[in-house]
Structure formats: C-alpha cells, structure tokens
C-alpha cells in the first residue's frame, strides 16, 4: 500500500517552498497515486524559460519502491526519450532510497537537465547529436523548449477557440486541454492521436 500520509506531507512540504525551488507537485485527481510534477528549466541551459511537466505514478510500495516518472512535455535531451519522455536516472531505478522524496527526485531530474550524460543515453539519436554536433543539439533543444515547454499567453477560452477553428468539437477540445494541463500543443497532439 502507498503510504498516503507521507505523500500528503510531501505535498505540503513541497508547496511550502515552491517560491524558492520552483518545483511543484500536484495530484492529477483525487487519487494520490498519480501526480504531476512541474520543474522550471535550469538557467543557463537550452531549457531555460521552459516549464516541464512530469507524469508521476506511485507504485504500491512507495516510498520503498521508486516513483515512476516520465516527461509529459516533449524535451530534447540525451537521457530523456524524445518519443516517450522516459527518463534515464539512477535514483529512479536501483539507486532509489526511501529517504528520497518526490521533491528531491524532481530536483535530481532538474539537475539532469543541466548535466546531460551522453555516455549513458536513453535516446541514442539525441546523444549522438550531442557528442558530434553540440551546436545543433543546443539549437534543437532550445527550439523544443520554445515549442513545447513555454506556456502560451493565450487564455483557456482562446486555446479552445483555436482548436475549434482547426475543426475539433468544442467539448473534445476542452477536455483534451484539461487533461494535458492547458498546453495547446499537447492537446493538439492528443486530439490528433485520437
């Protein structure tokens, strides 16, 4: 069984210093087993200015088993799959310790954004580009940040309107936007994939 009391405490603790860390964790629904984490892209990296959403699923043995985390926001990084958002990070696997928390894990993910390890890649294509042509890598990563990780200035209604103009029914567009946390690109992707 998931230790919900601890998850509650973690959430409280996290919201207390959200100003300092910029890291947010919020449950997706009433069920505390599925959460969404948000981390700001680290300053001085191609991810700067972006806000990255991470899907978190807690296994039954949490905190004695590591939480499952993967990027919901598309990101161009050697240790993160550009397709699925899967993260290659030791503390999410065998180096997990029950003494770690969702917040410390997200901090580690944020640290991973600033210090990629192309020697142990999750995404071979990205890793090769990183090693062979660093400038292009930075360009692509920055472009992806601009495209996928920047919250648009448009309000929800405008986003819905935009999607309706593209030919999607309004109710569907609204629910799609809600399910991805207001990101119109992700909503569009979701609508297109059916």
């Amino acid at each position: 069984m998931i230790d919900f009391a601890r998850v509650q405490k973690e959430l409280q603790e996290c919201s207390r210093d959200v100003e300092a860390s910029g890291i947010k964790v919020a449950p997706k629904s009433d069920n505390l087993g599925r959460l969404t984490g948000t981390i700001p892209g680290p300053v001085g990296t191609p991810y700067e200015g972006g806000t990255f959403q991470i899907d978190i699923t807690l296994p039954d043995g949490y905190p004695f088993e590591p939480p499952k985390m993967q990027f919901a926001t598309k990101v161009w990084h050697p240790n993160i799959s550009s397709q699925s958002g899967a993260i290659c990070l030791d503390i999410l696997k065998d180096q997990w310790s029950p003494a770690l928390t969702l917040k410390t894990a997200l901090l580690s993910v944020q640290a991973l954004l600033s210090t990629p390890e192309p020697g142990d890649p999750q995404d071979a294509v990205v890793a090769q580009q990183y090693l062979r042509d660093y400038q292009t890598f930075v360009g692509t990563a920055r472009y992806w940040t601009e495209t996928f990780a920047k919250t648009s200035s448009l309000g929800v209604e405008e986003k819905v309107q935009k999607l309706v103009e593209m030919g999607f029914p309004e109710a569907l567009a609204r629910s799609a936007l809600e399910s991805v946390g207001g990101d119109e690109n992700l909503a569009l992707e979701k609508l297109c994939s059916g």
Partner: peptide, 11 residues
C-alpha cells in the same frame, strides 16, 4: 523515552 522523527514516514 527519547523520540525521533523517522525521515521515511515523517512521523
């Protein structure tokens, strides 16, 4: 008699 706070369950 002493109490500690467990870092895992935070109790």
């Amino acid at each position: 008699s002493s109490t500690i706070t467990c870092d895992i369950c935070i109790e």
